[in-house]
Structure formats: C-alpha cells, structure tokens
Amino acid sequence: MIIQALAFYLFAIVAVASGAMVISSRNPVHSVLFLILAFFNSAGLFVLLGAEFLAMILVVVYVGAVAVLFLFVVMMLDINFSEMREGFLQYLPIGGAIGLVLLAELVLIFGSWVVSPEAGEVAVSPTPPLGEMSNTAALGQLIYTDFIYLFQAAGLVLLVAMIGAIVLTLRKREGVKRQVIADQVSRRPGDVLEIKKVPSGSGG
C-alpha cells in the first residue's frame, strides 16, 4: 500500500511539474519534451488505477504519434516564440485573476459534489470485476458490439478530417515531372538509343 501511495505521489508531482515546465520553458523543443514526460507520468497514474489499456494507448498514441508530430511542427515551422510571448506579463494579472476565480469555483463545485444514489444502477455497461476480465478485453467486447454506432461515427469524423486536410492544402502544381513506372518499364532500347556508325579515321 505504501509503495502504491509513494508511486502515486511521485507520478502526480512529476506530471504537474512537467506540465508547468511545458508552458514556462523558453525553448519550444524543451516544452515538447516536458509534454512527453507529462504523458508518461499520466500513463503511470492510469496503471495505478488498474486501467492498463488506457496507459498503453496514452504512450503509443500521445507519445508515439502526437508528441512527435508536435516536435516536427515546432522544428519545421519558423515560429518566433519570443515574439508570441510579448505582452505575456501585461496580460498576466487579468489572466491570473480569471484563473483564480475559476479555481475557486471548481473547488466549490467539487467540494460539494454529490453522486446520484441511482448512479450505479443505471450504468449501461458496468465495469466487470477486475479478477474476471482484464479491462482491455472488457473494452474490446464493448467497442465493437454495444458501441459500434459510436465507433463508426468516430471513424466518419476522422474521414472528414482527412478530406478537409486534403481540400485545404493540396495544390496541383503545373510543370512537375512525375515518375510513370509503366512508361519506364515499357521503354525499349530502340526508342531512346540511336546507334551511329562512326567511320574510322575521319574523327577529329
């Protein structure tokens, strides 16, 4: 038990600290690296909760794909971050005040949080006991059966995102030479080579 508590505090503290570093470090590449650290620690927290599938997905998707994409964007786009930060101090007081008000409100709400007495009974797909089934298997059984509608709908959202990205960015450029493999393969020596007889002794 004590090890679990220690692990929780370790993961939580590192996650919060790296979150703070993401927004405060000067170098954007460092920000992304701290973001990755935050993801890893959140994955650790998920493992402590017994949600190992979510933990792995977090690492695979967020660290493996999203964070690397961020790195690419940060490195490839020439964004002047110091310019973007100008006026940060100017807006700090009002931004901080709004943040504090929100924090106070959240504390008030969650301090008086109530869960409906019927909440357990109405759940559409209750979590199976941990001993019976791992939560990866439990999720797998639901996503493709009970929640097939949502799964397909999410797929359509991704399809639209893909179409949108192509519509807004793909440009046809004129005068670009493209490789046509069929042309290359069907080319015969006779089409491109011309054998010339050079009479001997007449060259310069």
Binding site: W113, V114, V115, S116, E118, A119, G120, V122, A123, V124
Partner: peptide
C-alpha cells in the same frame, strides 16, 4: 455524467 453515472437520455431522465 459524474452526477448521474450514465449518458443515456432515458436513464438521465429517470435519475
């Protein structure tokens, strides 16, 4: 959801 433990409209209404 945190209050009712369900997202279905029917169950929300009963809760």
């Amino acid at each position: 959801y945190g209050f009712a433990g369900t997202t279905s409209f029917e169950n929300l209404a009963t809760v």
